[in-house]
Nucleic acid binder design. Structure first.
Lengths: 131, 131
DNA sequence: ACAAAATGATACCAATATGGTATCTTTTAC
DNA sequence: GTAAAAGATACCATATTGGTATCATTTTGT
C-alpha cells in the first residue's frame, strides 16, 4: 500500500529542479537528465502540470517550463490530487450504498477523521520545503 | 487515491458479522448473504484470514469460522497489511536509490513522520470498535 | 526563409494489480 | 455414505500503472 504513485513522485522531483533553476527556463531534456526520469514520461507529466496551472510552458526553441507560482504555494496534496485523484480513504464503503450496517458507518466516520488529519498534514508539505 | 481496497473492506464486514455472531460458527454462505459480498470471493478472503491467524476455521458439515481472538485485538492496520501489504507512503523514493537529491530526503523524512502518525491512528481502529 | 529545438496532443502498449470465478480435494456431521 | 462445509489452486476479465511513439505546432537562431 503506497500513498504516492510514480507520477506524483516524478512531478515532485521535476518541480524541485525547476524551482532550483529559478527564472531560468527548464527543458524536459535537461530535467530528465537531472532527475533520472524517462524523458517521454516526464514530458507527459509536465504537460498535465501545465494544464493544471502548476507550471507555465513556452514552446519553440529554447522553450520549456517555469513554476506558475511560488514554490511555497505548490502543495504536495495538490499534486496527489492531480495524478491520483482525491484522497478518499474509505471510498468503497461510501460509494456503494450496499452496507447499511452500523459497522461501516462507524468505520466511515473514523476514516473521515483520519483523512482530514492526513490532508492537513500533507498541506504542510510544499515544493519550497523540499529545496 | 484510496487507502482501503475491496478485500480489506470485505474482510472488515465479514469480521464484524462473525464478531456479532459470537460463539456461533459462521459459514461463508451465511456471511455472504449477510454482508452482500460475492460468496467465492469472500471464501478466498476468509481463507487468507485463517492462514494469517485472524480467524479459526472448522471443516466439514456445520463448519465455518470464528474469530481467533477478541474483536478488540483485531486491528484495521493488520488487515490492511494482510491484503494490501505494508503501509509505505514513500515507497518509490525509498526503494530505488536513483534520487540522491536533498529534495527526496526531506520528502522522505516528512512522509515517514506522516506514516508513523497514520499507523498509530489506524491502530486505534479495531473490529470491536465497529460493532 | 528555414531548419532545429522545443512543447501539445494523442494514440498506443506491456506489465501488473484488482476483483472475481471455477474446480477439485479433504474433512466432518448426520 | 452422502451432504455440507472449508482447503487449495488455477484461471480469467478488466482497470490501472508506467512508459513509448508519432505527428502537429510553435518559436528561435542563423
Amino acid at each position: 500500500m503506497k500513498l504516492i504513485s510514480r507520477d506524483t513522485d516524478y512531478a515532485v522531483r521535476a518541480l524541485s529542479r525547476i524551482a532550483r533553476n529559478g527564472n531560468k527556463i527548464s527543458s524536459v531534456s535537461n530535467l530528465a537528465k537531472e532527475t533520472a526520469v524517462p524523458r517521454p514520461f516526464l514530458r507527459k507529466i509536465l504537460q498535465t502540470l501545465n494544464k493544471k496551472g502548476v507550471v507555465n510552458s513556452s514552446k519553440g526553441r529554447g522553450g520549456g517550463f517555469v513554476l506558475a507560482r511560488g514554490a511555497d504555494k505548490i502543495y504536495l496534496v495538490e499534486l496527489i490530487n492531480i495524478f491520483q485523484g482525491p484522497i478518499k480513504l474509505n471510498q468503497c464503503l461510501f460509494k456503494k450504498k450496499i452496507c447499511h450496517e452500523v459497522a461501516s458507518c462507524v468505520l466511515k466516520s473514523k476514516m473521515d477523521a483520519l483523512e482530514k488529519n492526513m490532508i492537513s498534514e500533507l498541506k504542510s508539505i510544499t515544493i519550497a520545503v523540499l529545496i
